[in-house]
Computed example of a mutant assay.
Amino acid sequence: MRTIEDTAVTTSGPAERVRKVLFSVLGGSVDASLVGPDIDLWEAGLDSLLSVSLMVALEDEFDVEFPDELLTRETFSSVRRITDAVAGLVAE
């Protein structure tokens, strides 16, 4: 059985890197297999404190800085939205 960490190591795509960071922040509180690209992360257990930890970890992982206009609940609502935001920042 592959774990999220195994997938992150073998796949270098931004979505997998986002998932790796997300689950390192959430720890074991969320079953990774249940979190698809559009699952509402807030309903899955993300809260405001964890979202700040996630933002900082993503900034470190991707060497980017989230501008104030992206610091919203919507930006951090799903893996897809986070990946899109990070991709936009990396492209700048």
Rank of each mutant, 00 (worst) to 15 (best):
R2L: 15
T3Q: 07
I4Y: 11
I4F: 08
D6R: 07
D6M: 10
T7D: 09
V9P: 00
T10K: 13
G13A: 15
G13M: 13
P14E: 09
A15Q: 15
A15V: 12
E16F: 10
E16D: 14
V18Q: 10
R19I: 03
K20G: 15
V21C: 08
V21F: 05
L22W: 06
L22R: 03
F23T: 00
G28F: 05
G28L: 04
S29L: 05
D31A: 12
L34E: 13
V35M: 06
G36S: 10
G36R: 09
G36L: 10
P37T: 10
P37F: 09
P37Q: 07
D38W: 00
D38R: 14
D40S: 12
D40Y: 05
W42Q: 06
W42Y: 08
E43M: 09
G45E: 10
G45Q: 09
D47F: 00
D47T: 00
D47S: 03
S48W: 01
S48C: 09
L49P: 06
L49N: 06
L50M: 13
L50F: 04
S51G: 08
S51P: 06
S51N: 10
V52A: 12
S53N: 15
S53K: 11
S53C: 08
M55H: 01
M55R: 14
M55I: 14
M55P: 04
A57I: 01
L58W: 06
D60F: 01
E61A: 09
F62E: 03
V64M: 10
P67G: 07
E69A: 10
L71N: 11
L71T: 14
T72L: 13
T72D: 09
T75A: 05
T75K: 05
F76S: 11
F76T: 09
S77W: 00
S78K: 06
S78Y: 05
R80L: 12
R80D: 15
R81H: 13
I82Y: 03
I82R: 02
T83A: 11
T83C: 08
A85E: 07
V86P: 03
A87Q: 11
A87D: 12
G88W: 13
G88C: 09
G88A: 12
V90M: 13
V90G: 04
V90K: 09
V90F: 06
A91G: 04
E92A: 15
